[in-house]
Design a protein around this nucleic acid. Structure first.
Length: 414
RNA sequence: GUGGGCGUAGCUCAGCUUGGUAGAGCGCCGGAUUGUGGUUCCGGUGGCCGAGGGUUCGAAUCCCUCCGCCCACCCCA
């Protein structure tokens, strides 16, 4: 028995209706902010992620699906999409196009982690990138937009967390300071933290071990060490969010896992997601283009929604997709007659299922399919040009002409 | 990579402690006479009990190994 590979899954109806709805909502919101879709390959040269995401990150060191192609180049199934979008931006000289480039995407990403609730090896992201501006106005607009998507997708009770992680100017100084403090503090902390103090000091900040919290609270935060330009940027972002009435919480200890982030970072969390409670993450990446070899400075900011997680927290009771009409032809001649009628109704936008068989069986099936109406076509009906249309909710049945039926169906759909 | 929980019918699960070669509900299919669904009643389909090995006269049940799924750590979407 062949099964879906570990960490991947089949999305079946009616759940796929929810996915489509979420995607449709996102596209509609993106449209109103003048974002346009970009589709990049799922397969990229491994170098792209090593340089873009960061050679020392968990993603690159142990989570990528990498293999050697037949021409000996190393290729990787994309673990995220920002690096690809920037690659495409550089490759196609989108910096030469007028204005800020506002791009969105949706599709599968791959990371070889141990699966658990809300975490899959193939997962789907809906994301957007605004490239070509350093303005905090853009930061606020991007955040506003993604919050709009969440709200219109039906997600309630989500919490927006923001932070600034500084830039190449102030962050190294902060990390240095943190390292210093940790020399004294780390020995009293959990084993993981002692290890992290060496490898990645920033990670100590979001340790969840209860006993470590008092110590962590005394450690300096990046916010206190921001250089003036970074501080001004962060203050502006907060002000613009305030102008829009967007509620947020500053989390000075929030750390992001990708190296390219600088200045603004943000995240939205939601309960009922299990331990993986983050629905989306994003931030500014002003140096990413350069680290991918671009000669033009291309500052940008973007986010990525975990679509699996969004669907999970939005998904309520799923009712089967409604069917407008079930056609029940009685006999061979009626099947031919009914098939033509079905085509005409479909052309008018009505969803139609044509079912052969004994009337009783067809009626039972129509009921199970949730058909709004059933159209019975027998010899009498064909001779008279009037057909029996049964309203499955009320049980009423009327003898109507084609045009009358079309009108009834149209009326019921509106 | 490391823990913990769980694998019995399409689905949700009982049976396992105290071994005697499988059950319920739902679903699916059919019937309750002619071209009418939902409710009810009757009948039926359906399982190498995750896989392999061991103990035993006999294993879904006890023991070992493996595999799979889930949850958590880690990390992140």
């Amino acid at each position: 028995m062949i099964k879906a590979v570990k960490g991947t899954r089949d999305l079946l109806p009616p759940s796929t209706e929810v996915w489509n709805k979420v995607e449709a909502v996102a596209r509609e919101v993106f449209r109103t902010y003048n974002y346009h879709e970009i589709r990049t390959p799922i397969l990229e040269e491994t170098q792209l992620f090593a340089r873009g995401v960061g050679a020392d990150t968990d993603i690159v060191t142990k989570e990528m699906y990498t293999f050697t192609d037949r021409d000996e180049t190393s290729v990787t199934l994309r673990p995220e999409n920002t690096a690809s979008v920037i690659r495409a931006y550089i490759e196609h000289r989108l910096d030469q196009r007028p204005g800020v480039q506002k791009l969105y995407y949706m599709g599968p990403m791959f990371r070889r982690e141990r699966p658990q609730k809300g975490r899959y090896r193939q997962f789907f992201q809906i994301g957007a990138e605004a490239i070509g501006s350093e303005s905090p106005v853009v930061d606020a607009e991007v955040i506003e937009m993604v919050m709009e998507v969440l709200e219109r997708a039906g997600l309630g009770g989500a919490k927006l967390l923001i932070n600034s992680v500084g830039d190449h100017n102030c962050r190294p100084q902060y990390v240095e300071k943190l390292r210093e403090e940790l020399k004294d503090a780390a020995p009293q902390m959990c084993g993981d933290c002692q290890r992290r103090a060496e490898t990645n000091p920033l990670r100590v900040l979001d340790c969840k071990v209860e006993a470590d919290q008092p110590i962590i609270e005394k450690l300096p935060t990046i916010i206190d060490y921001l250089c003036d330009p970074c501080r001004a940027h962060f203050e502006a972002v907060k002000q613009y969010l305030g102008d829009r009435g967007i509620e947020y919480e500053v989390r000075p200890r929030m750390v992001r896992g990708l190296d390219y982030y600088m200045r603004t970072t943000f995240e939205v969390v939601h309960g009922a997601l299990g331990a993986q409670n983050s629905v989306l993450g994003g931030g500014r990446y002003d140096g990413l283009a350069e680290s991918l070899g671009s000669k033009v400075h291309s500052p940008g900011i973007g986010f990525s929604i975990g679509e699996d997680r969004l669907v999970m927290s939005v998904e309520g009771e799923q009712r089967a997709t409604p069917l407008d009409l079930c056609v029940a032809p009685l006999g061979e001649a009626a099947v031919r007659h009914g098939a033509v009628m079905a085509r005409d109704f479909r052309r008018a936008g009505v969803s139609v299922e044509l079912v052969e068989g004994k009337l009783k069986r067809v009626m039972e099936l129509a009921n199970k399919l949730g058909a709004r109406f059933t159209l019975i076509i027998g010899d009498n009906e064909m001779a008279a040009g009037r057909y029996a249309l049964k309203d499955m909710t009320t049980g009423d049945q009327q003898s109507l002409t084609r045009d009358e039926i079309a009108a009834r169906l149209a009326a019921a759909r509106s």
